[in-house]
Design a protein around this nucleic acid. Structure first.
Lengths: 155, 155
DNA sequence: TATTGTTATACTCTATAACTATA
DNA sequence: TATAGTTATAGAGTATAACAATA
């Protein structure tokens, strides 16, 4: 009764498979991250924020919210926490006294570089069944999703 | 200084792109779901639970926890909520008086079928830039991630 | 003794609304 | 008047630990 949908549409199946692959990958990343046994807890969202600040070197909280697709309040929340963990610094924006710039601390830079290394390792392991050409094909196919759209969001 | 990594490893880039595509897709699904304007709120996790119960027709809370990769406590939480929304029913398992079977209500079945229809629509739209062959290629490439691994988790 | 699900409790992530300070 | 970030508050999702009922 429930599973009568034998000739299910290919489109939905393909999308499901892609999401499944993505969840699987994220699961691997998270598992490896806790295995890293960092002095501070670097969850997915916290890490994503750190990496985004890192890429910009210095960035307004405002702009960060937009890039991450989060609300200002959420950025304040994370930054409070990351600041008290000694990972991020608030700097008054000299050009606009309402604004606040964010910058990573030395400690955060160390963590980021470690995490990035691990991410490379995991990525390579995840792609071990792929030939160079298959990787290239997959990359090009995935680009088709963003056909025409401007995508900026990170991680 | 921060972005000196010009020749970044292809593997990490490809994985990032896949995750980005996945986030984009999930975003589309969530947006369409709220646009459906259902009588009850069907968030991602709640929907995933409903769909998993639906696929099994009837399932133990226990088994559901494993399939979804969640803890028993979390299942109790969701089921309490879905039950009070009239979407799910707890049935004592006749074979084991410790266990509880879950089943969808008629109302939930209506919602599930509507949601599945929408998911097909969105999936087709997301794949509009793909030729039949490109879809097939993508599907086969994605399968490589699960090379040898037994993957069951849904949605 | 082990397993199923629950009560009690808590943490993380995210957000809305009202407010302060600046622009 | 509009914008940047904060305080106060809340809701969703998930989990650990202790426990009850049953196996």
């Amino acid at each position: 009764m429930a599973n009568e949908d034998a000739n299910a549409p290919k489109a939905a199946e393909l999308i499901q498979l892609l999401l499944r692959a993505s969840h699987y990958i994220q699961h691997e990343f998270e598992a490896q991250l806790v295995a890293l046994d960092m002095p501070v807890q670097l969850s997915g969202p916290r890490l994503r924020l750190l990496l985004t600040v890192w890429k910009s070197d210095t960035i307004r909280m405002n702009e960060l919210a937009i890039k991450l697709g989060l609300k200002a309040r959420t950025i304040t929340e994370h930054v409070d926490s990351l600041e008290s963990d000694g990972l991020i610094t608030r700097i008054p924006d000299p050009k606009d006294r309402r604004a606040t710039l964010l910058q990573l601390t030395e400690e955060a830079l160390t963590h980021v570089s470690r995490v990035r290394y691990i991410q490379e390792q995991i990525s390579e392991r995840l792609l071990q069944s792929f030939s160079a050409e298959q990787s290239k094909d997959l990359y090009e196919l995935l680009t088709l999703f963003f056909d025409g759209k401007e995508i900026d969001f990170v991680c």
